[in-house]
Amino acid sequence: MTPFKKLTSSAVPLPIEDVDTDQIIPARFLKAVTRDGFGENLFRDWRFDKDNQPKEDFVLNNPTYTGQILVAGANFGCGSSREHAAWAIGDFGFRVVVSSYFADIFSGNALNNGILPLVVSPTLLDEVFRTIEADPAAKFTVDLEAQTFKNETTGTVSTFNIDSYKKTCLINGYDDIDYLLSQSDLIEKFERERKDFSLT
């Protein structure tokens, strides 16, 4: 996993609520057996029409909007647990997704792939959308160590929450498996001592 500490970038706005993982990566692209190349099909059916021609009104086809930050409406990533959604977002080049809240499984999948799901208040989310609308090149700074999110245009700095363990993982590029393996003695002890094991 690539470590993540600090990032200043313009952002891509997607002011739609309840974006589900079937939109992020439709099921027919889940046939791959590796983690690579999903970015090509990110938001496939919003990006391309049925003849595979880019839909001009979709934001990812608009060269005005670029950057490593995706800003989306509430409840981003709901629906299917497919981690392919996080792989597609990462492979496309996003490191941060900003929303007022994320679906639980998506949020875990993102963190496990070095993508920061950054939760802001609904008011702040509106401000961010307005800033990008006024100036598509507007920059934002995400500082994971300080847990701050700065709108470089308005100067608004807000703090965000992240679980301290997950923060360490992201900064250092560790994943959970390393940690869990380090606990193997405790896991074995749990198995040995568990009373109702035969019942479960």
Binding site: S81, R82, E83, H84, A86, I105, G108, N109, N112, N113, D175, D176, I177, L180
Partner: peptide, 8 residues
């Protein structure tokens, strides 16, 4: 769960 967790 996601695939990373399947692996875990």
């Amino acid at each position: 769960i996601g695939t990373s967790q399947v692996e875990q």
